[in-house]
Design a protein around this nucleic acid. Structure first.
Lengths: 233, 233
DNA sequence: CAGTGGTCTAGACCACAGG
DNA sequence: CTGTGGTCTAGACCACTGG
């Protein structure tokens, strides 16, 4: 029985995944090259290429020129996390969103912040703290430092009605960033804001965004206890 | 002054990103269609398509047939996390890896586990607990349940030398999975294994993997305090 | 050096959804 | 109905890298 022809790259991808899962192509094994597969599948090489590239992106295949394509031995799981604007995150679950600005002032940041932003230690930055609230329950505490050299308009903004989270997204371009996920123990202040016991385990996201070589902002978001981020694998 | 010609999709992508960051194309705005851009860039439409698709995948563009392509208004950040096999994670940092199996027995799982695996409440599963160690310091505690119906060979494996983490990856295919990130407070036992204070905030990954409609395994990995996952944005 | 994947091109048809 | 993105094709050249 011959392999039926495959019309599109998704069906080729499905077949490739099937062969990997069914161990027809075993871990570490070399699979046929694109030209041969195209022949077998009855489609153009481009189509096979697209399918194999997709599978390789997910980590299940290792591709190298001349060496060919192999089934990955220990496929590292790759999970794509989507971190939405907090307001959207809450509203999409049908909860009402509320926002409270806690603090806003210009100050020299602690060393950890100026280091992370590669900003001179005594250079004042705009410090904005705020609470995001879902259905009247504290949801996340946002502790942010903004570089006024890069975002001068921020100095004219009170951040009382609009969160810095949203305001920056709308007003400030950035070229790249770094994001760190961790678990931290709630300090006394943080616990008070989030209305949870001191030293609760909090899911934490730290983010620094850059516009070229200049740090735009550094933010730490502390989510309330029991917060979790879920994704398909 | 004309736009110079672009030779490959990466350079087109770079130019597209530049226009978005420079606000030449503003958030919410419609950008020219593929055919026009191809003309402007002096390349084939396929090439433009590849570039725009890549940018859209990263969340900065919204594309819809007939409606055209728009710059995203509030681009949700997308971060791709790579979760390697723990041994590799440790060895890649140049640390020595060590492993200790703590427990292994067949037992009826707690309700939370049988629910997550959609397995009958009284159906016995293989429970394997183990410690992953980096440079003689506890690194992560692995608490795993394996479905022996799907992986009968696991019953013949002691998991004393090879972690279930690696063994399953090598021996068991899976079709899909779900992964949850959270922060949890160390229980007394967990704290003892990880040699950290009780109630420390621990970064936690829960994973359930499936082969078709059957759950293969459910694992909870508790990382030591201060563990963090970092990725570019 | 030669085999492999990576990519480009021009042209074509199609699926979808806005108006 | 029609404009848009989504995809396929055949053929071509290139870049990398293993042997």
């Amino acid at each position: 029985m011959n392999t039926p022809t495959f019309r599109n790259w998704q069906s080729v991808q499905t077949e490739v995944l099937r062969r990997i899962h069914a161990r027809e192509w075993k871990p570490g094994e070399l699979i046929p090259n694109e030209a041969d597969l195209a022949l077998e599948f009855g489609c153009a090489r481009t189509t096979v290429n697209r399918a194999l590239r997709a599978v390789a992106d997910s980590g299940l295949l290792d591709r190298r020129r001349k060496a060919g394509t192999r089934v990955a031995i220990q496929p590292a799981a790759k999970a794509t996390l989507t971190i939405p604007v907090i307001r959207n995150e809450i509203e999409e679950r049908g909860q009402t969103y509320d926002y409270h600005r806690i603090e806003r002032h210009l100050a020299a940041p602690p060393a950890a912040v100026s280091d992370a932003m590669k900003s001179p230690a005594d250079h004042p930055l705009l410090h904005v703290c705020a609470l995001h609230i879902a259905d009247n329950v504290p949801y996340a505490f946002e502790d942010r430092w903004i570089n006024p050299d890069v975002v001068p308009d921020a100095l004219n903004e009170s951040f009382e009605a609009v969160s810095a989270n949203e305001w920056l997204l709308k007003h400030t371009p950035y070229t790249h960033g770094e994001i760190v996920f961790a678990a931290t123990s709630a300090t006394r202040d943080e616990a008070a804001f989030l209305k949870c016991p001191e030293k609760s385990a909090l899911f934490t996201i730290d983010r620094v965004t850059w516009d070229g070589e200049f740090a735009v902002t550094k933010v730490r978001v502390l989510y309330g206890p029991d917060h979790q981020i879920r994704t398909a694998l």
